[in-house]
Design a protein around this nucleic acid. Sequence first.
DNA 1: CTGTTAGCGCATTCAA
DNA 2: TTGAATGCGCTAACAG
Lengths: 347, 347
Amino acid sequence: MVESQVSTAAEAGDSRRGNPRIQDVARRAGVAIGTVSNVLNNPDLVSEQTRAKVEVAIAELGFVRNSAARALAARRTDTVGLVLTDIANSLFVDIARGADSGTARGRLQLLLANSDSDEAKQNSYLELFDQARVAGIILAPMDRPLEATLAVHSHGRPLVLVNAPTAEPRLCNVIVNEELGGYLAASHLLDQGARRLAYLAGYPDLHAITGRLDGVRRAVAGAGASLRVVEAPNLKIGSGRALGQQILQSDGIDGVVCPSDPLAIGVIQAATDLGIRVPEELLVVGYDDDHFASESAIPVSTVSQPGRRMGELAVELLLEEISQPADHLHQTVTLDPRLIPRRSSLR
Amino acid sequence: MVESQVSTAAEAGDSRRGNPRIQDVARRAGVAIGTVSNVLNNPDLVSEQTRAKVEVAIAELGFVRNSAARALAARRTDTVGLVLTDIANSLFVDIARGADSGTARGRLQLLLANSDSDEAKQNSYLELFDQARVAGIILAPMDRPLEATLAVHSHGRPLVLVNAPTAEPRLCNVIVNEELGGYLAASHLLDQGARRLAYLAGYPDLHAITGRLDGVRRAVAGAGASLRVVEAPNLKIGSGRALGQQILQSDGIDGVVCPSDPLAIGVIQAATDLGIRVPEELLVVGYDDDHFASESAIPVSTVSQPGRRMGELAVELLLEEISQPADHLHQTVTLDPRLIPRRSSLR
DNA sequence: CTGTTAGCGCATTCAA
DNA sequence: TTGAATGCGCTAACAG
């Protein structure tokens, strides 16, 4: 099963004791140590000739800057840390992409850490970045108290939240209006003629899930329709199918709002199995605009969240806080989700 | 659209000029600087009482270790860098998970960087990690020459490859047998009675795609069946549907091997649209075991790659190289993929 | 077990 | 423009 093909050991570079230092470069180029530092950090201050000599020496020696020494001496860093709750979730991937383009614009480097929905890991990565004296931290936190986070921030590390459950007045926070998302989804189904809605509340303790439910309730109340709320054990297809089969058998449900796209796909499958036609007899809407939602057999209507924009905005806010640590105004930016109607909800 | 709710500025921690240093802690605790260092790094060498005093001082001051200074003085780091080609790809996410559990076991921290299929970014992150003097680097490289990578490695940075296109004798490499994957997929369809196969070669210049094709060819040749190879512009559902419609119209194709699950789903949709029943009249197999493949209307057979294991193994090899830089034997570990038969290919 | 000291490699003065 | 000196905050080695 495991075929191992071995080869000879390392034969290069290891003869040197440690890496070449800036001083080695200086000696080799026949210049002073400060000059080498200048070609690295302020090339304009160095004559063309000298610079060339130094660059040759750097190349010949294979010199690589030691960022620890650099950070220590310069008392700053140009790295931003992003701590993600779940690297497998498309929203967070989008946020990372947005953050990446944001930091690139600011000549910063972005390092990722995946907390994997583990609070201890989350805090451990926060501390790692704090110890590394990163320029700032962006955190997509779990639905839990933010003590450790506030601690990191309170001793001076710039930090902004993304997709945090509650507005935290002492921190910047980029969130999306969950209530509105639920409202958009439910209103749309009602507009299309549904009258007996169901909401599949996966992970009912997540702020996103309950926030969306509030919006669904508001829409339903305004339309004088009925709503049944069912708790789903998770947000996957399997749950959607199981719950779909359960509620579609009897209730006369004609519209289902799902807080995830897999859930919606599961419901559609259950309906198909039961001979209930989508969208003719049942309207379904999902959430997140997962890549496969638009391309399943019956393209799934969905509520899309502006993940990239969230990441970009988080970086902007972070840069603000970095540049004006004193009189920086913390703010919560709330972005609106957007309904994308597709066949599963259009009559 | 964007509602901004502002609050007051930071009111804590900023009065201090810079972060407290280990010396401040020592003074406050009334001990020597080395003692503080010891409670941080060798708690066993310190008496219970002293340790308590120091810990109180640390807490009161909000002291956070400066890892740059630490790294500089200790001449080492306990961080491993993982450079990923595509954070949105489930294989790489699995690799990251595996690497994470591997590093956790070794008391190392894992930092991620997403090259986003951009060679310049990939090299820039390699350099970032190199400058940071990380303990080692794991790289899931793009299908390109590895000059920059070899340069980083050759001046002494431990580095192992994951999922690299070709075995690189100077480096450890954890790969999966692509040829075998294609062979397993095609053989399975042939076993189930298919005789006229098609292979949807998305991104035909990727080693993974062509490697699998080789395996498909081998299986087909052994069975005296026919094979049609079609180039797909990418690995998404849309391509699968488009190509499916194209080849299923006329050719009498009765089995399709797809190098991705979305492609397979697209083909199944095309078949359904054309009134061709799956699996009765057409057998389909995908690749990667994407989470939704098992749960679509017709569960998709697939070839699963051992991503987690790849990540774990990469860390193991890296740790070996770190601990014995001199007489370390580079090796290429080839893992076997596994066929997961589901309804789309079972008669 | 505790305290002292000498660098780690670099950026950054300030003179020349 | 260039070069010599100072110290960033910490670890490790060693003497007490």
